[in-house]
Computed example of a mutant assay.
Amino acid sequence: MIDIVVIGAGMAGLACAQQLRQAGYLVQVVEKSRGLGGRVATRRLYDTWADHGACYLKPKGELLKRFVEILCDRQILKVWTDTVYELNPNLEFNTQNSVLRYIAPTGMSAIAKFLAQDLDILLNQRVIAITLTPENNWRLTLESNNEELIAKALVVAIPAPQALMLLAPLGESLLDATFLENLRAVEFYPSISAIAGYPATSQPLPPWKALTFVDDVDLAWIGLDSSKRPNPQQPHFVVQSSANFAQRHLESEDLQPAGQYLLQRAAESLALPWLNTPKWMQVHRWRYAFPSRPWHEAFLSTETPLPLVCCGDWCGGNLVEDAMLSGLAAASEINNQLHRVTLDNVNFLKLFS
């Protein structure tokens, strides 16, 4: 018997699980992927790392500022740049000088690995069904060998459309109609990321580390990802598409032509023709990249016989900071429903200090 199962090991799920573990609950995290962090994702390839999801942290609120300070003290994060260039539709460059942007030299997934310390996490395990047991507990059936987990409470920390597919079969006999309608109303923009590497003898690198394309129909962002790495042996870039472009190509079986087109467009717009001829390239689709219609509160809860709360960056925003705040709010709500402990004395950040 587990106190609480958290479905999803993104930043919301990990923050929620850590808060509840610190409060004394027995917590099990279940993640369908082989890695942690959700869209805080890093791919190992060609003797380097590339961040093909969240490319940097730009802390605004107090929680993430303090968390970034802790990660910098542990040498997990460092300052990358305080300047991001913009390319407007007239192909004119502007600069954005604002808050510092932080990156992880070994890849942004290092943040999730740090947040996951001491948690009990099942990776490569997809929850395929949720039901109630005769003893009035949650039963979660896993895809692998139809194994089961039994829990008193459940946190669903995955994108709302995925949560809906998992929870809708419970029906309105367990979940009220308003809850399902609210979950169904959340919508996402997709994105396609292309990672491209070039020979060490390529043309001189551009002066920018990151650049945003303003009102471009195909391109959203490009970053010199190799500038994050210690002693990079070859330059590599990450190009992120616009939502419009991703929507057109999301169901393509082969994404390589889409990635090549993104490089071609970037090469033309930036007057860097060699960007169009990479030594290697990998392309990744993000079906649920950024909430286009988020839920307006920090979590989404429903009246059920047993505690059930949904959370994620789609609750209140679309940033890493929003995801963590949503996870902590979900932890508080689950604790309130279980009536176990007072969380006032549970300091999430103190756990890592």
Results as ranks from 00 to 15, higher is better:
residue 125 Q to R: 13
residue 113 K to M: 05
residue 82 D to S: 12
residue 33 S to H: 10
residue 104 A to S: 14
residue 92 E to L: 11
residue 97 N to I: 15
residue 59 P to V: 05
residue 105 P to D: 09
residue 53 G to K: 04
residue 105 P to M: 06
residue 87 L to A: 05
residue 91 L to K: 10
residue 64 L to H: 01
residue 73 D to Q: 14
residue 75 Q to R: 04
residue 122 L to Y: 04
residue 112 A to V: 02
residue 68 V to S: 00
residue 32 K to E: 01
residue 52 H to T: 13
residue 31 E to P: 07
residue 92 E to Y: 11
residue 50 A to V: 07
residue 125 Q to I: 01
residue 97 N to S: 15
residue 124 N to M: 14
residue 93 F to W: 10
residue 117 Q to H: 05
residue 111 I to W: 03
residue 67 F to Y: 12
residue 65 K to H: 11
residue 79 V to C: 03
residue 45 L to N: 02
residue 41 A to D: 02
residue 41 A to R: 06
residue 34 R to M: 08
residue 123 L to Q: 14
residue 118 D to C: 11
residue 46 Y to P: 03
residue 31 E to D: 10
residue 95 T to N: 12
residue 58 K to D: 09
residue 82 D to A: 14
residue 31 E to S: 03
residue 109 S to D: 06
residue 62 E to D: 07
residue 62 E to Q: 01
residue 32 K to Y: 00
residue 53 G to F: 08
residue 74 R to T: 05
residue 89 P to N: 11
residue 61 G to V: 01
residue 79 V to T: 08
residue 99 V to Q: 00
residue 97 N to K: 09
residue 52 H to V: 12
residue 36 L to V: 02
residue 87 L to W: 07
residue 46 Y to E: 12
residue 103 I to S: 04
residue 96 Q to F: 00
residue 65 K to L: 04
residue 105 P to V: 00
residue 44 R to E: 12
residue 105 P to L: 02
residue 44 R to Y: 09
residue 117 Q to G: 07
residue 33 S to P: 01
